[in-house]
């Protein structure tokens, strides 16, 4: 049961970690690195609360072995939160009540980020399509969709 050293870029910084075989990115982030914005709602790829970006693409960190991201760029909510302040997407989620219990929120924001990076002016249907893998049991989704529309307006075509 030999652990392995894996090197990758996490939130813009190159890091080296020692992981047991088949350790997931979710477990690494949460239990080894203490980055708990990435949630563990189901560990089955079913809820989207653990969504991280790998080279900008949303992935379920609960299904992703750390060794598979060797040399890649992984981004979590911690990585897009400026200090001090909030990312525009965080701002609009906060101001538009696109949050209730807060458990799905990090995953929702990461998917929104990936969407707006690709498509600065998404239509309502495109937003819904991007969010289909992310469950929210509280809000009924409407405030989340509206928040992303508002984020697109505020960014005015400028992602990041």
């Amino acid at each position: 049961m030999a652990s392995k050293i894996v090197t990758f870029t996490l939130n813009g910084r190159r890091i080296e970690v020692l992981v047991k075989p088949l350790t997931t990115v979710q477990t690494l982030l949460r239990d080894q690195l203490g980055l708990t914005s990435t949630k563990a709602g189901c560990k089955q790829g079913g809820c989207g609360s653990c969504t991280v970006l790998v080279n900008g693409d949303p992935m379920m960190s609960c299904l992703l072995p750390v060794e598979d991201v060797q040399g890649q760029e992984v981004t979590t909510l911690e990585g897009i939160t400026p200090t001090p302040g909030l990312h525009i997407i965080q701002e609009v989620f906060y101001e538009n009540f696109a949050i209730q219990c807060g458990y799905c929120t990090p995953g929702m924001i990461m998917v929104s980020k990936a969407l707006l990076d690709r498509n600065p002016h998404p239509g309502r249907e495109e937003i819904i399509d991007a969010l289909t893998g992310n469950y929210c049991r509280c809000t009924g989704y409407e405030p989340i969709i509206q928040a992303i529309e508002e984020a697109a307006r505020r960014m005015n075509g400028n992602g990041n």
């Binding site: 989620f93 949050i99 807060g102 990090p106 924001i109």
Partner: peptide
């Protein structure tokens, strides 16, 4: 009125049970 717990939620800093170790 903005939610009191909102900033924790949007930054992922709210501490849920599974975040306590």
């Amino acid at each position: 009125v903005l939610r009191r717990d909102g900033l924790g939620h949007v930054t992922g800093k709210t501490i849920f049970i599974d975040d306590i170790n």
